[in-house]
Amino acid sequence: MSKVDWLSIDWTKNNRELSVELGKAYNTVAKKRYQLGKSGKAEGRAVRIDKGINNPNNAIGGKISQPIAMRAAKLSPKSGKFETNIHAKKWRIVSPSNQIFIVRNLYQFVRDNSELFLPKDVIFKRQGGKRGTGGEYCNATSGLRQAASSGRLWKGWKCKQIKDK
């Protein structure tokens, strides 16, 4: 690549023309124009090439791709409601009848074994945000997590997080 002498450029041309002529990115030319104080001197202002085209990454175009991404995330073993969720931790849970469970995902354990808890304790709720974006919880998961952190019992249940080696 050849080095560009930015001081000898004809700054009356717009950024798009200069970027094509110099073989540089549009943003590089725009940045140099700003750094050298050459703004406002171009004769014709270039209109963005992508003007009027929906961008799936922005708020308006995202309405198209967002539902697709959400469906894919729910099916993914790393992000969905699975034992293999990336945030899942290993737990040792002891029931009031001294039955021991070693589980990989506390929330999945409660969902799969809801009959072990009172019906009112396994009603999952959403928390945080206008649209319920804060995650889900129920009394059983909250109680077991609190029992694990405090070392106390929750309705006769003991819970302890097991560190992976």
Rank of each mutant, 00 (worst) to 15 (best):
E115A: 09
Y137I: 10
K120V: 12
R126I: 00
I102K: 10
T141Y: 02
F117G: 00
G132W: 00
V103R: 09
S150Q: 04
Y107E: 15
Y137D: 05
G134E: 06
Q146E: 04
G129Q: 08
G128E: 11
N105G: 02
N113M: 06
I102D: 08
L144Y: 02
F117C: 02
R111T: 07
V122L: 08
E115H: 10
N105E: 04
S149R: 15
R126N: 10
S149P: 02
Q127P: 05
N105R: 05
L118V: 01
S142M: 13
E136F: 03
R104M: 05
Y107M: 10
F124T: 06
A147T: 03
I100L: 15
G134Y: 11
S149T: 13
R131I: 05
G132S: 08
F117D: 08
S149H: 11
K125G: 03
I100F: 02
K125A: 10
L106G: 00
F101W: 14
N113W: 02
G135K: 04
L116H: 00
F109R: 01
S150T: 15
E115W: 04
G128Q: 07
K125H: 13
E115P: 00
S150A: 12
I123A: 02
F109D: 02
L116K: 06
R131G: 10
R145F: 08
Y107C: 09
V110W: 01
F124L: 09
E115Y: 12
Y137C: 09
R131L: 14
V110F: 06
V122T: 15
I100W: 01
V110G: 04
R126E: 11
G132C: 06
L118E: 14
Q127K: 15
I123C: 02
Y137N: 07
I123N: 03
A147F: 08
G143L: 07
K130E: 11
A148T: 10
G135Y: 11
K120L: 10
F124Y: 12
G135R: 04
R104E: 14
G151Q: 04
A147M: 02
D112H: 08
I123G: 00
A148G: 15
G151M: 02
